[in-house]
Simulated assay, not measured.
Amino acid sequence: MARMHTRRRGSSGSDKPVADEPPEWSDVDEADIEERVVELAEQGHDPSVIGMKLRDEGVKGTPIPDVKLATGKKLTEILEEHDAEPELPEDLHNLMERAIRLREHMEANPQDHQNKRALQNTESKIRRLVNYYRGDALDEDFTYSYEVAVELLEE
C-alpha cells in the first residue's frame, strides 16, 4: 500500500507464519491467559505492549506466541469482554501524543518548517482516524483539537 503523505511506495513487511493451532510447548489454559491480559491492562499497558509481554514473559513462565491462536479471541476482544479496554484506541492515542510533542516543539522553534509539515500530516491522520472511530470508540460529536488531545491524555 502506498504511503499517505509521500510519493513513495510502502515497504513490505514480514508476514506471520501460517498456523492453525498454538505450538505444543505453549499449552497454557485460556482462562490463565485472559486473566494475565486483564491484569496487564489494569497496570496501564497498551494492547501492543501486552502482546509483547505475553510473548517475552508469558503466563506462569510459558511464553504465548499468539494470543488469538491460544484463546480463539483477539487481545482487544478479551479486553472488551472484561471492560478493561483503553479509553482511546491505541493508534489514535499514539498519534495524539506525537501531535502534542510536535506542537510544543513548534512553539519553541517557530522557524522549523519541516516539523510544521510533520504536524500538519499528523493532525490530518488524526482527523481521518477520528472519522473512522466516531460513533464506535468515540462519541458522535467528538472533534479533534490540540486542547482536546491535551485534556484526554492528561487523564
Rank of each mutant, 00 (worst) to 15 (best):
S14E: 08
P17H: 14
Q111Y: 00
D112P: 00
L88G: 01
P65K: 06
E147D: 11
E90D: 02
G13K: 03
G58W: 10
R9M: 14
P23S: 11
M1R: 11
Y132K: 11
P22F: 14
I33A: 05
K60M: 09
E140F: 02
L129H: 07
L152E: 03
S11R: 12
R55G: 01
Y132Q: 07
D112H: 01
A137C: 02
A19P: 03
I50T: 13
Y146V: 05
R8K: 06
G44H: 06
A149W: 04
K73Q: 02
V18F: 15
Q120I: 11
L88V: 13
E140S: 03
S11N: 13
M52N: 14
E35D: 12
S14F: 06
L129Q: 08
D32K: 14
S14I: 00
R101D: 03
Y133D: 02
E123T: 07
E154L: 00
D136H: 14
E80Q: 12
L95Y: 08
A2Q: 12
S124E: 13
V37M: 14
L153M: 00
P89W: 05
M4S: 12
N131P: 08
R117Q: 07
G10Y: 03
R9N: 14
K116W: 06
H5L: 06
R98M: 12
E30S: 09
E104Y: 04
K60Q: 12
E80A: 14
